[in-house]
Structures are given as C-alpha cells and as structure tokens.
Computed example of a mutant assay.
Amino acid sequence: MKLAAYAVAIAVLLVLSGCEAMVFQPDSRVYATPTDLNLSYREVRFDSRDGTRLSGWWLEPGGVPRGTVMVVHGNAQNISAHFLGFDWLVRAGYEVFIFDYRGYGASEGSPGLEGAVEDTEAALAYVLARRGGRVTVIGQSLGGALLFNALARQGTERIALAVFDSTFASLPQAGREALDRSVVGWPVQWGASLALTDRFDPIGIAPSLAVPKLYIAGSKDSIISPNHSWQLFDASTRPRAFWLVTEAGHIATFNAPLVRARFLAFIRRPVFDPDASAMLIFDRSEPAR
C-alpha cells in the first residue's frame, strides 16, 4: 500500500513539475517540403517580440492568389508535417503562410505558452504588413488557443474570418479529460490540471473577440472533445458558426472533400445564419481522395 502511494506521489511530482512542457511536442525533422507536392514556396525568417528568430513558409499558388490564409499549427512536429493538411487550399488558389513557433523546426528558442503567443502575434503582424486587404486565419488544436490570444492582444481589424479547428476551451479542463481516459491518470488528474495555467484559455476570450468565427470539430476526436468547440461557440458573440464533422478525428475535419468544398465556398462568402438554432452544421465525413 505504501509502495503504491509512493508511486502515485512520484507521478504527481513528475506531472506537476513539467506540465507546461508536456503541452509542447516539437521536433526538427523535415517530414516533407512543398516541392514534394509540386507546390511553389518561399522560406522566410522573422523576429518575435523578444528577438527570437522564427521560420515560416509562404506556399504560393499559380497566378494571382484568391486570398491569404495564415495557419497556426498544433503542438506536435513542425510546419514540414502540418502544411500537408493545407495543400488543397493552395491548389484552390490561396496563398498559405504557415510558421513554426519557438523551439519547433528551424525556429530558435525553447517552447512555452507566453513565447508561443508572442510568436503568433509576430507572425500575424508579419503577414498583415506584407499583404493588403483582409486575411483568413486558422488555428488548429493548441494553435487555436495561441490564435485566440494573439487576436485579443493585436486586434482583428483586418481579419476576414478566424477559424478554430479542434481547439480546447480550457487547458486545465483538457488536461483533466486526457488523464481521465486512463486508469493510470486518475490519481493525478486534479493535481495536474491545477498545475496547468488557465491564463491563456480561449473560453475567457471568446465573449469579447469581435471577429467572424468558425468553430469546427470532429465527432470522433479522442484528444480534444468536440464539446470544447461547442463551449467556445456558445460563449462567442456573433457572427459565429459551428461545424461538427461526423466520423472525423482530431484536426482531421478538412480531410473530407465535402468539408473542403463547403469551406472554400464559405471563405469566398461567409454567410452566418441569424437563427442560432441553425448554427450547428453537420457534415458527413467522407474518405479523402
């Protein structure tokens, strides 16, 4: 009994001492480049607020772009893996800017929540300084939370649409739910969730973020429950929309051709139904072609 209690105590200490670090899972491996998909791109460098040198890619369509989309990716790997989920946007005529926050890929520094928010601010400022007109922004998973914070700090004047894909409403809540899925995690779930800061939680920002918002989630997301997207949608001011993609997992909603087609139509002309009861849109996920 004492041995079991000791093991639990050690587990608690390990989790609590590294909770923020556990949020980030960076690497520097090159998984692919746009050239592998016959896409044109430019690699660029820019600075975060504190001078940390960051890396980004401009993915360029043939001809004059229909518009600009900035992507804030999730917490694992780096842009060389995440850009693979957006090649269809480039082929549809949009230029896509995707970057690595600190500690990821070719970006300098070590990962951390405050730094990653500042990096997202810097990326947004970099894009807006180089492109006229309005920009669509997409944040996936952790990237959605970073985007929430960056928009709250920097403003939304030139943001045409903010898309939050599989984003958590609260980091402590998401941590609790993740540990609750395993018997091993039950003894430490509350301690771990208390150690995770709620300072960057999107649920506290959603009611005051004055920008058109689209929340999208997969009904079979086993990492971040789609209930998080619903909470954010429910807390948000209008205009807002929520798409629940059936049969889709975590950040896999855009794999379905039907969802891609609907999204392309939506960013060309975002129409938000004024009837709140019609804001929940169901799309059946289809195998990616």
Rank of each mutant, 00 (worst) to 15 (best):
G185I: 02
G185E: 11
G185R: 08
G185L: 06
W186E: 14
W186T: 14
W186H: 15
W186S: 14
P187W: 04
P187S: 06
V188L: 14
V188P: 06
V188H: 08
Q189R: 15
Q189G: 04
Q189L: 13
Q189H: 11
Q189D: 11
Q189T: 08
G191Q: 10
G191A: 12
G191K: 05
G191F: 14
G191R: 10
A192L: 14
A192T: 09
A192R: 09
S193E: 13
S193N: 13
S193H: 11
S193Y: 12
S193K: 08
S193T: 13
L194S: 00
L194N: 03
L194K: 05
L194A: 11
A195P: 07
A195F: 09
A195D: 08
L196W: 12
L196S: 08
L196D: 04
L196A: 09
L196G: 07
T197K: 05
T197L: 05
T197D: 11
T197M: 06
T197A: 12
T197H: 06
D198G: 07
D198V: 02
D198C: 02
D198Y: 00
D198K: 02
D198P: 01
D198M: 02
R199E: 11
R199K: 12
R199Q: 07
R199V: 05
R199G: 07
R199P: 00
R199C: 01
R199L: 05
F200K: 01
D201E: 13
D201Q: 10
D201T: 10
D201C: 09
D201L: 10
P202M: 02
P202Y: 02
P202R: 01
P202Q: 02
P202K: 00
I203D: 00
I203R: 01
I203F: 01
I203W: 00
I203V: 12
I203K: 03
G204K: 00
G204S: 01
G204W: 00
G204H: 00
I205Y: 03
I205A: 04
I205T: 08
A206G: 07
A206N: 03
A206V: 09
P207H: 01
P207A: 02
P207K: 07
P207Y: 06
P207N: 05
P207I: 07
P207Q: 05
P207V: 02
S208W: 03
L209I: 07
L209G: 00
A210V: 04
A210Y: 02
A210F: 04
A210W: 00
V211E: 12
V211C: 15
P212E: 05
K213G: 02
K213I: 08
K213Q: 10
K213V: 03
L214W: 10
L214N: 11
L214V: 10
L214E: 08
L214R: 05
Y215H: 05
Y215F: 14
I216C: 12
I216F: 12
I216Q: 12
I216S: 10
I216D: 12
I216G: 13
A217Q: 06
A217V: 12
G218F: 11
G218K: 09
S219T: 15
S219D: 13
S219E: 14
S219L: 14
S219A: 15
S219H: 12
S219R: 13
K220Y: 13
K220L: 15
K220V: 11
K220E: 15
D221Q: 02
D221N: 03
S222F: 12
S222D: 13
S222Y: 10
S222I: 14
S222L: 13
S222R: 13
S222E: 14
S222A: 13
S222T: 15
